[in-house]
Amino acid sequence: MLVLLGVLVVVVGFALRLNAMLVVTVAGLVTGFLGGLSLREILDAFGTGFAGSRSIAVFLLVLPVIGLVERNGLQEQARRLISRLARLTTGRVLAAYLVVRQITAAVGLLSIGGHAQSVRPLIAPMAEAAAVKRHGALPEAVSRRIRAFAAGTDNVGAFFGEDIFVAVGAVLLITSFVDTTYGLTLRPLDVALWSIPTAVVAFLLHGARSLHVDRVVAREVRAAASAEGRTGAVEG
């Protein structure tokens, strides 16, 4: 049970908002020593873990091209596009992206979306532009809220679509673990099918929240405007 102190290091470190890199490294060392590993074994585990997880970093390779197109006005162009489509609101942009993300992930195309390759260059500027079209220039806090919601929408769509796809990831992890550990013979397709109810609920919940963003934005813009009006009156 002593090894749980390592978990405590993580929880306390994140709660105190210490630098995450330090927290994680210290937690790894503490857990390793309490678990009876030698320094050499801990360093080996660090190295193996790092080497084995390099695929998470491949998104960095798209940054040069994203930077290049942004330099040439990509985000501005995404905003112009939105301002021409009168019926598109922030909420509808986000809900539409949720649909696309969930469906493409469900057929196995998980890595075609993502924060670097689609949220930053396209979805976030489009969602912001739709709000600007309606309300004029946005307070920075409102812009940030829209961008954060766009990132959340990417995650929700990816997580609750991916699990329906039979050939990789969660489904195979489940079947391979329980088949080898308990001698069952689960069909991956059954596991995938039982993921659908949750995927539907996730779509309804997050889709409704996406559409609701329009009202949240309207409320916050009004609040910011009236706050500005008040301070303006005092100064005046």
Binding site: M1, G6, G49, S53
Partner: peptide
Amino acid sequence: SVLPQLLAMLGLVFATAGVGDAI
């Protein structure tokens, strides 16, 4: 940009040290 990999590495240490069984 490297934090996700450090966390994967911590996960491996947790697993090797038996954190999962304790939980």
